Every structure is written in C-alpha cells, then in structure tokens.
Amino acid sequence: MHELAPLAHALAGYTPRRLRFRRRLKRAAVAVILRESRQGVDVLLAVRAQREGDPWSGDMAFPGGRVDGVDEASASRAACRETAEEVGLTIGRDDGIGRLNDRLTLDHRRRAPMVVSPFVYRLAHPDEPVLNHEIAATRWLALAWLDEPSNRQTMHWPIGHVRIPMPCYHCGDGQRLWGLTLAMLDELRTLTR
C-alpha cells in the first residue's frame, strides 16, 4: 500500500528529466492530484468526454492542458489553471509536492512535437470535482490497485495498418488507462518501491 508521506519525501529528493528544448516547443502541463484514503494513496483521473475526431475520447487522463500566454510561461501554473477549469478543483504552489519527467509527444492538431510536464499535488481539502464540457467524469483510483499484476492488461493501438501492443488497465465502464498517463503513473509508483 502506498502512503502519501513517503511518496512526498521521495518526490522531494527526485530529479526529474526536464527537456532542455521544452520552451521552444508547444507545451502542455498536467496535474497528478493525490489524496489519502483507506486504500492508501488515490490519484484523480478524468474521463475525457466523447468528441468526434478525438482518438482519446473516453480515455482516462490527468487534468491539464496547454501552456499559454496567460500562464506567463509557467507550466505548473497552467496545470493549476486547467485543473480549475476542467474539474473545478483549486490547487496551487503550496499543494505541490514535486514533478515527474517531461514527456515528448505529438501535438496531433499540428502534427508537431509537444512537451508534456506532469506536476504532482496533494489535495488536502475534500472538495468534489465540478466538471466542464471536456470531462465526462472523474474517478479516484488507488495506486495499490495498479500494483496488482492481474489488473494490468494489453491493448492494441492501430497505427496505419499495424496494431501496436500497449500496456493498459481496463477500469470498468469502458474506461481505459494507458499511454502517457500510464507512463507517468508507472514513474510515480516506482519512487516508493
């Protein structure tokens, strides 16, 4: 079972990889929001709303979005702003307990590289999420559930005529956890092993 205090301590001593060229590319930031529960540490996941043309519709992800001018080039500020917009939770610098590795991905709107920076926050207050149109639902998932090998499965992601096997979790109700979100959670979970 994961506990928040050792995880926060591990994050305090962790040096995440920050891509040097991140400020020259399009950027996004996500908020990995943790809380303590009877199962140990839970993480907040947002279920993306169904949208035509969005290959990730219905998938689980962290709240977050693009870093833009209003964020004054602060990716952590963007993660906080997007969290408030998407799920109605207020988090700030004082709630931050660390960050994870920058991830290079593809901005599918422009077919260009994009850097995603994940920031980890502790949610001390028990507020309930208030969702906007981008989010269909939220779910608190115990990190301990992700530790069970029997819960981890494989899906096949189509790229052209090829189907690439990818690790995933099927979380019920058609909700699927995979890709960048899963890679970030795997990184977080390894910090306390």
Rank of each mutant, 00 (worst) to 15 (best):
G58V: 02
G58K: 03
G58R: 03
G58L: 07
G58C: 02
G58Y: 08
D59C: 10
D59M: 09
M60L: 15
M60S: 13
M60N: 08
M60H: 06
M60C: 14
A61Q: 12
A61E: 13
A61K: 14
A61D: 11
A61N: 10
A61C: 11
F62A: 06
F62Y: 08
F62W: 06
F62G: 06
F62S: 05
P63A: 15
P63V: 04
P63G: 06
G64A: 00
G64K: 05
G64L: 03
G64T: 01
G64C: 03
G65S: 01
G65I: 00
R66M: 06
R66N: 05
R66T: 02
V67D: 03
V67I: 05
D68K: 00
D68G: 15
D68A: 06
G69C: 02
V70F: 00
V70G: 04
V70I: 13
V70Q: 03
V70Y: 00
D71S: 06
D71M: 02
D71H: 05
D71P: 10
D71G: 03
E72Y: 09
E72P: 01
A73F: 07
A73M: 08
A73P: 01
A73H: 11
A73T: 10
S74T: 02
S74P: 05
S74Q: 12
A75Q: 02
S76M: 14
S76T: 09
S76Y: 09
S76Q: 13
R77E: 09
R77Q: 11
R77A: 15
R77L: 14
R77T: 08
R77P: 04
A78Q: 01
A78H: 00
A78P: 05
A78M: 01
A78S: 09
C80K: 05
C80N: 04
C80F: 01
C80H: 04
C80L: 07
C80M: 13
R81N: 09
R81Q: 03
E82C: 00
E82F: 00
E82H: 04
E82P: 01
T83R: 09
T83M: 08
T83F: 09
T83I: 09
A84M: 13
A84G: 14
A84N: 07
E85D: 04
E85N: 06
E85H: 09
E85L: 07
E85C: 01
E86M: 11
E86C: 00
E86F: 02
E86I: 01
E86L: 05
V87A: 08
G88L: 08
G88P: 13
G88R: 08
G88D: 13
G88T: 09
G88C: 10
L89K: 14
T90S: 15
T90E: 08
T90V: 07
T90Q: 13
I91R: 06
I91D: 12
I91N: 13
I91P: 12
I91Q: 06
I91C: 14
G92D: 15
G92Y: 04
G92M: 09
G92K: 12
G92F: 03
R93S: 15
R93V: 07
R93T: 10
R93P: 11
R93D: 14
D94A: 15
D94E: 15
D94F: 05
D94C: 07
D95C: 15
D95V: 07
D95L: 05
D95H: 15
G96D: 08
G96Y: 07
G96R: 15
G96C: 14
G96T: 10
I97D: 12
I97T: 14
I97H: 12
I97S: 14
I97G: 13
I97Q: 12
G98V: 12
G98Q: 12
